[in-house]
């Protein structure tokens, strides 16, 4: 549905997006995760035809974003990061205006506005001037605007920023729902949010995609790189050979520390041997005082990426 190939964007000397490529299938919610300043918004602005790319190609369905820009814009619903709206207009007027720009007829607009305002809980706010609305309500108006023409692709840039916890939960539920009918690209800097809502996640940092997969795949990919550390009291040779015999264990290293054996275990991707270690220790009568995962989890990885980004921008 969305195909990006070798996309690069420079702002003067600054390289915002560095030769990225990805493919998004039809349907589902795809997360675009990255720290602030990683190039998320830049990529999104190219996808939505707001900024032209320096080089590379983007296709929405079969349409080229640069050559068939107007046709592409008809098929996209876009909620931009700051949700800019005209403060002097009333919500209904604004949605009418946006509907007209997208070529909806008068009766189509009536239906679309009714549907969008129900799904985004606009309620009685529909007749209020936009300037009087809270940040959360404005966000909903932006969301209603993005989805009113029933676009094939919905692009939401940080849709939950500035909302209160209840609104965040409601918005996430709505996004999950929308993912059943539309292809949704959701940008966020909150790992937890993306894991909860998305069927596929891309992590972007410093203009590059550094990881991509379903939340489960990503977790496994990163937990696999980690080690399991266990400490137990028992004879060194027995402990080493016993652990090595367990299913899914690739390598074992043991060292003694005041009578305790510290065992560092590398296991095969996707397998978790912690329970087996416990069973082994209890069968042999060895005391077990610690068992934990060591090293890279998805959180650690994301924090590392975020920290690198921050040290770069300082």
């Amino acid at each position: 549905m969305i195909r990006v190939s070798q996309l690069t964007k420079r702002y003067g000397a600054v390289l915002a997006v560095d030769n990225i490529s990805f493919d998004i299938e039809k349907g589902g919610v795809v997360g675009f995760l990255g720290p602030n300043g990683a190039g998320k918004t830049t990529t999104i602005r190219i996808l939505t035809c707001y900024h032209p790319a320096t080089s590379g190609a983007v296709h929405i369905d079969v349409l080229d974003v640069f050559k068939e820009s107007i046709e592409v814009r008809r098929r996209i619903g876009y909620l931009s990061e700051s949700t800019p709206l005209y403060p002097e207009m009333r919500v209904r007027e604004y949605l009418q205006f946006r509907g007209k720009l997208r070529g909806l007829t008068s009766s189509e607009r009536t239906v679309a506005i009714k549907r969008a305002s129900q799904r985004c809980w606009l309620g009685e706010f529909i007749n209020r001037p936009i300037g009087q609305l809270s940040k959360g309500m404005r966000q909903r108006v932006g969301l209603a605007d993005a989805m009113m023409h029933n676009p094939e692709v919905l692009i939401l840039d940080e849709p939950t920023v500035g909302l209160d916890p209840t609104q965040i939960r409601e918005t996430r539920n709505l996004i999950e729902e929308l993912g059943q009918e539309h292809t949704v690209l959701l940008s966020s800097h909150i790992l937890h949010e993306v894991e909860q809502v998305c069927t596929h996640t891309m992590i972007i940092a410093a203009g590059k995609i550094v990881a991509s997969g379903s939340p489960k795949e990503l977790r496994e990919q990163f937990s696999a790189q980690g080690k399991i550390v266990a400490e137990m009291r028992g004879p060194k040779e027995d402990v080493e050979s016993g652990v090595r015999a367990l299913n899914g264990v690739k390598a074992v290293e043991a060292s003694s520390d005041h009578g305790w054996m510290k065992v560092s275990i590398e296991s095969e991707p996707g397998s978790d041997v912690r329970e087996d270690i416990f069973k082994l220790a209890s069968a042999k009568g060895w005391s077990l005082r610690e068992i934990r995962r060591d090293g890279a989890t998805l959180e650690d990885f994301f924090i590392k990426v975020t920290a690198q980004q921050q040290s770069k921008s300082v």
Binding site: R45, T48, C49, Y50, I70, E71, R73, R74, I76, Y78, S80, S82, P84, L85, Y86, P87, R98, L101, R102, G103, G142, D145
Partner: peptide, 14 residues
């Protein structure tokens, strides 16, 4: 200034 140019130019208008 308001940034509404972004929503405007991402709608199908030239």
């Amino acid at each position: 200034r308001n940034g509404t140019i972004e929503t405007l130019m991402t709608a199908p208008v030239t």
